[in-house]
Amino acid sequence: MALLTCSNLSLGYEGKEIIGNLSFEVNEGDYLCIVGENGSGKSTLMKTILGLNSPLGGSVTTGGGLKQTEIGYLPQQTDVQRDFPASVWEIVLSGCQNRQGFRPFYGKAEKALAKMNMEKLGLTQLSGRCYREHSGGQQQRVLLARALCATQKMLLLDEPVSGLDPKVTAEMYEIIKELNEKDGITIIMISHDIEAALTYADKILHIGKSVFFGSAEEYKKTAGAFTSAKGGARE
């Protein structure tokens, strides 16, 4: 059963198309990596899946009991967050908003969920501490815990390791792999790092001048056609 189906998507801003005629499916338990050069529209695609941007054409549909608002999202870092006074606990808890409806305050269930996800990512000690005083790796884990509060089924990660040092990057990849394998959470991740993508993901979506969608093995075989992005796409 496909959790997510994108058919004939056309993406862009103010009527100007960036990508056209994009179709793919994501099944339960998949680990999909989206790769492609800078500015090729990876983040735009992710925002469209989340319903933040509307596509110029085509459609995004969710299935298998997944609602669009029940997708966990780890965005690319924004500026506002850098000087925002917020504790780790407050941020993780805010991931429970989609269960809240019009209820103004968090109940026991939400607090328990936030606690559980903080424990899962080793954040329990940091609970009352200030978000902006943490290292990049810890901040990403906080945002990942928040995303986990929002979903049981699917995570969308927009460059989760950009700006992290190699050791923390490896840890992050391990955490994501575990979420995929142990908890059965479907992963869609944007990455610049094609080697990591080929190591961890089982499917690859390459967007840009040429589009590829298929298994990681097939992508390796056709490497010649796409790996030009490998050297060029890294920041």
Binding site: Y73, T78, F84
Partner: peptide, 14 residues
């Protein structure tokens, strides 16, 4: 809080 801290995430969660 949710909208101020991260508007995109807030919108994504409905």
């Amino acid at each position: 809080f949710a909208v101020t801290f991260d508007e995109n995430f807030a919108r994504a969660t409905g």
